[in-house]
Computed example of a mutant assay.
Amino acid sequence: MLQTYVDAWLASVRDTIALLEELDDAAWSTPTDLPGWTVADVAAHLAHLEAVTAGHVVDEAPTTASAGGIASVYTEAGVESRRGLTREQVLDELRRSVDVRAERLGGALPDDPTARAEHTPAGVGWTWDTMLRNRTVDVWCHEQDVRRAVDRPGNLDSAGAHVTTHTFAAAMPFVLGKKVGATAGTSVLWDLTGPIALQVGATVGDDGRARPGVPDSPTATLTLTSDAFAVLAAGRRRPGAVEVAVSGDTDLAHRVLEQMAVTF
């Protein structure tokens, strides 16, 4: 999977750079779905994390992040420190960092995907598998943030889209069992209609833990596009802002929709 992640990350980040290069000043100032962040801020965030993972810069701010995630103060500091830079300066940092990482990762990937990765954002204790997967998800989600903001849809069936969709799909049992706290025997089917057609299911066991698997007779079914699924799972928009068809236990379905946002 490491090569899959690298290929998907590189394709997505190259496409994002190409898109950013085409935008004018007005487009760079366009608000995105991320509160308080414009397209320029998304570009700055990508430049920050790619520079860190390339080993070009040290972290701009202390962080309380653990092995499980990155504190928001860290990502905000990376954006804030670049607010005085020009568009070309941000893009140049992003390009150079991506080139360095692409060359390094193209040379030889780690033999052990469970080994601790180097140059992780905020120094979190991610393995190589987690690190490369998370960078793919982050880059593709931010590519889509920019595309939605400037009304330039695309790459909804790309390699990055597939990695991201399957990554979010793997988190849905956690959503149902832990975040929603559904009772034993409760099951949910997320029926993704495309561009990435996929059925994602989870059922709560007697121990209160939900496990993956498409149920024969789900308690509730959510039918939506894979794009809408990613928007909700990434926490970009509230459930009412995307189109979802619900059947079965509607109360359960709406509780699930309210809790679908997950972080990596």
Rank of each mutant, 00 (worst) to 15 (best):
L2W: 13
L2Q: 11
Q3R: 15
Q3S: 13
A8H: 11
L10H: 10
L10D: 05
T16C: 07
T16I: 05
A18M: 04
L20N: 02
E22M: 14
L23W: 12
D24T: 15
D24K: 13
D25C: 12
D25E: 14
D25T: 09
A26R: 15
A26T: 14
A27Y: 07
W28R: 02
T32K: 04
D33I: 10
D33Q: 09
P35N: 13
P35V: 01
P35L: 04
D41P: 03
L46H: 08
H48W: 05
E50M: 10
A51L: 09
A51M: 06
V52G: 07
H56G: 03
T63C: 10
T64M: 01
A67D: 14
G68C: 03
I70C: 00
A71M: 06
S72E: 11
V73L: 05
T75I: 14
E76K: 15
V79A: 14
V79T: 11
E80S: 10
R83C: 11
T86K: 09
D92V: 02
E93R: 06
E93H: 08
L94Y: 06
L94H: 03
L94T: 04
V98C: 00
V100Y: 00
L105F: 15
G106N: 12
L109M: 07
P110N: 09
R116N: 13
A117Q: 09
H119D: 15
H119F: 07
P121F: 05
P121S: 12
V124S: 07
G125R: 03
G125T: 13
W126Y: 13
W126E: 15
W128M: 00
L132P: 12
L132R: 06
L132Y: 14
R133P: 10
T136N: 09
T136S: 14
V139K: 03
V139F: 01
W140F: 07
W140V: 14
W140D: 05
E143W: 00
D145L: 07
V146P: 02
A149P: 12
D151I: 13
D151R: 07
D157K: 15
D157A: 09
A159K: 15
G160T: 13
A161H: 11
A161F: 14
V163R: 04
H166M: 00
T167R: 04
T167Y: 14
T167K: 01
T167I: 01
F168E: 00
F168S: 00
A170M: 06
M172W: 06
V175P: 10
V175N: 07
L176P: 09
G177N: 05
K178H: 10
K178T: 06
K178P: 06
G181K: 03
T183L: 08
G185I: 01
W190L: 09
T193V: 13
G194H: 03
I196T: 04
G201S: 04
A202R: 03
V204Y: 02
G208M: 11
A210F: 03
A210S: 06
P218Q: 03
P218T: 00
L222E: 01
L224G: 08
T225S: 08
S226Q: 04
F229T: 00
A233P: 02
A233V: 03
R236C: 04
R238V: 14
G240D: 11
G240T: 09
A241N: 14
A241K: 15
A241F: 00
V244L: 04
V246E: 13
V246Y: 14
V246S: 06
G248R: 09
D249Y: 05
T250E: 15
D251L: 13
L252Q: 02
L252S: 08
H254G: 11
R255I: 12
V256M: 06
A261M: 01
A261T: 11
V262S: 08
